[in-house]
Write a protein that binds this DNA or RNA. Sequence first.
RNA 1: UCCUGAGUAGCUCAAUGGCAGAGCAUUCGGCUGUUAACCGAAGGGUUGUAGGUUCGAGUCCUACCUCAGGAGCCA
Length: 473
Amino acid sequence: MPSTNIATIASLAAHEGQTVTLRGWLYNLRASGKLLFPIFRDGTGTIQGIVPKAAVPEAVFDTLKNLTLESSLTVTGKVRADSRAPSGFELDVEDVHILQRVPDETPFPITLKEHGVDFLMEHRHLWLRTPRQSAILRVRATIMRAAAEYFDTNGFIRTDPPILTPNACEGTSELFEMDYFDDDKAYLTQSGQLYIEATALALGKVYSFGPTFRAEKSKTRRHLTEFWMIEPEVAFLELDGLLNLAEGFITHIVTTVLQHHRADLKVIGRDIPKLEAVIGISPEPATEPGAPSSPAHLQAKVGGSTAEPNRFPRLSYDEAHAMLEDAYSRGLIENPHKYGDDFGSPDETYISSQFAKPVMIHRYPAAIKAFYMQPDPADPTKALCVDVLAPEGYGEIIGGSQRVDSYDLLKSRIEEHSLPLAAFQWYLDLRKYGSVPHSGFGMGIERAVAWICGLDHVRETIPFARTLNRIYP
RNA sequence: UCCUGAGUAGCUCAAUGGCAGAGCAUUCGGCUGUUAACCGAAGGGUUGUAGGUUCGAGUCCUACCUCAGGAGCCA
């Protein structure tokens, strides 16, 4: 290999007029007689090469002319600006070296045409190479980074709870069970919340970020059996402060994605103005594609400062119920909502569709919520809890609450729910040794990615989705 | 677990109970500006499985399998 200027496709604008070497794969190939148009990809983007037969050695032309899609290669050529190219640049190919040629008899299965869900999931390991899937994974990475960054820069300590646990955290959802050496059973965690309550009372402000497992037989566009969750837990924080925290957290994530991923969102087909509305950017004359994000109003506050806070609508359970009653009376939803019941998916879809921003619903009936939620002093039949519903019908992305801080109340709640007291003794200890008010929430990363990218199914938001009917590849 | 729908070429899909089809992909040929390129040709089938009705079943009936969407439950 000649000592050349190794470059990535994403950085080609900085190499205009230079001869560079790219390392990647053949994404597509068109030919027009003695002129070839190979499209190369390298993980950072795609670029079209131009190969006139008269301008390159015969071996280079012949190699490319018959090359199979997704063969790996290095290609050397000169970067040239061209108004016809989608990215603004093309590569005048000078030389090419094949690393591995895809065999003729087994062509790359993912074509540029449409495919069905089952076929694509069966070939997920190859589907990931397509521009849309790569763009989604880039946005996912930024969402995960921005989420952690929000806590890291606001005084939180990351304390990850165990993945193997001795019992159910809430005792409701079904768990994946496994043998733990000789006589014990272990379960894959379905939430680290109880454990980070302990670390919060040690360190003040903490969060955890890791995989979570639910063995529910849910078969919908919103469910995975293995998903990632980020959970903050804060000592001395009460419900109102928790709502502010969730608001600032989501605002920071959306702001960061809009700052760094306009091109990816466009590839994915996201309605960007709807996402801008979440952080308070009113619809404006559209900027040209590729133009840098307007800095002034994108520099939204992180953790609250002088900037005007970005307020999300807040509804009590009672207010949300009234909204559903009104909707039912006007024929906007099919079934009436029964007061006291949790909201069903159609209910959540209706409520969230009434707002351009995520809507925070708080103070649900305690009877339908988890045992560890603090009752509302103003009405003990209600729990100091919140669900955040993403806009556009994406449903719940965050669930959280203030936690019970009284030893006696928590103990009686555990008993009422028929949970094994012995297994929760350590959790009760937290209320015995210096109990304080504390609150936290959990956000499912995949649901957040699905919403922010505007996807219709969470299976595209994670490299290898685990669902009820699929554990391959 | 329940409800609904779908399984036909490698892929996406057609086919009134009457000869198994198209586009893309693959192979071959043509084309010097193509953008899911285009034009011509060729190869490619146990119609999810097992039974049944019928002169005749991809099509109708029964059971099962697989997948998808929704409900419940949840993030």
